[in-house]
């Protein structure tokens, strides 16, 4: 079987899970698409999964109330073994890429990480993934009784509901005791469209000048365009914006239809997170800024003058 570990948050099945279902179906690997739901209070998540998969395995347990890499890895490896999975798909989120290698080691399986395409090649599984800060696209292949894969968010279309509803089964797990104690937690909530789902993103860099300007110009323009808000690492490190908004190597990878970069220099680590956007628009006062090399439309000018004019123009 193909085992998919569901991604979910706040009691909702995440789009990433639907994308993994498509990856599983398009891969050409055989066997029922089985979604494993780990968590507490996940009945709705399981129902949503049953609308797209042949089988849903549910572990609704107090011990799984909070994500923990060791627990998630133990549960996934156990179910993969019991179900004789030949393919295990895990979301390419931060947490997914954190516990997936543990699953691979437990199963003595090869690991195809953060893949953007997946297909059976005879007995082997072949995938594409980005390397060298997303500048290179690499085709990799593994051949083994079971292969672990993480799927890059946004790389596959979300699976539409299947005609029939999948069967749900409760599973019993042999879980280790968690060893990492969480002593504090700060969740960054925004009311805006999630960056990974936005069609348009407006991102501000250090060139925006101040947190106040960021609010006025970056958020102001995003409001007018119904866009998500992104930030560079420089801006996040300066404490102007929450980490949740960071785009780049150590932040989110995004691929919107339009990416508007305001006062962003275009460092390789930033480009690695947004370089695949359909259209890139840059406003920067330095005509030599590297961001212009990847821009479709660029304005050489001061964000403090151009952006208010842009916001004004959208009202016309």
């Amino acid at each position: 079987m193909i085992l998919i570990v569901a991604e979910h948050a706040s009691g909702q099945l995440a789009k990433a899970t639907l994308e993994m279902v498509t990856a599983a179906r398009e891969s050409g690997r055989e066997g029922p698409v089985t979604v494993l739901v780990l968590g507490q209070g996940v009945a709705e998540v399981a129902n949503a999964a049953a609308a797209v998969a042949e089988q849903v395995l549910v572990a609704d347990l107090p011990a799984l109330a909070r994500y923990d890499a060791e627990l998630w890895a133990a549960a996934t490896a156990q179910i993969a073994r019991e179900g004789e999975a030949h393919t295990v798909l895990i979301g390419g989120s931060r947490s997914g890429r954190e516990f997936a290698p543990r699953v691979a080691v437990k199963l003595d399986a090869p690991y195809l990480e953060d893949v953007i395409a997946l297909r059976a090649n005879g007995a082997a599984l072949q995938a594409q993934r980005y390397t060298y800060l997303a500048r290179v696209t690499e085709t990799v292949e593994a051949e083994a009784p079971v292969t672990v894969v993480t799927v890059k968010p946004g790389s596959f279309a979300p699976a539409p509901p299947a005609g029939a509803t999948g069967e749900q089964y409760d599973v019993e797990l042999d879980l280790p005791a968690p060893r990492v104690e969480v002593t504090g937690r700060s969740v960054e909530k925004t009311n805006r469209v999630a960056l990974t789902e936005a069609d348009v993103i407006v991102t501000g860099g250090r060139g925006v000048g101040s947190p106040e300007n960021f609010t006025a110009y970056v958020e102001g323009l995003a409001d007018r365009l119904g866009a998500g808000v992104g930030a560079t690492r420089a801006v996040v490190d300066a404490g102007w914006r929450p980490y949740a908004e960071q785009v780049g190597q150590t932040g989110k990878t995004v691929q919107p239809k339009a990416y508007v970069a305001l006062g962003v220099s275009g460092a390789v680590q930033h480009l690695s997170g947004m370089g695949k956007s359909k259209y890139i628009i840059a406003i920067n006062k330095d005509a030599e800024a590297p961001i212009f090399k990847v821009a479709d439309y660029g304005i050489v000018g001061d964000v403090n003058q151009i952006v208010p004019a842009l916001i004004e123009a959208t009202r016309k």
Binding site: I280, I283, K285, A287, F292, K293, V294, A295, D296, Y297, G298, I299, V300, G301, D302, Q305, I306, P308, A309, L310, E312, A313
Partner: peptide, 16 residues
Amino acid sequence: RLNKMIDGKDPQAAAA
């Protein structure tokens, strides 16, 4: 990439 550059000297015209 299209690399279309717009001069920002006149902010209103560039924005439009």
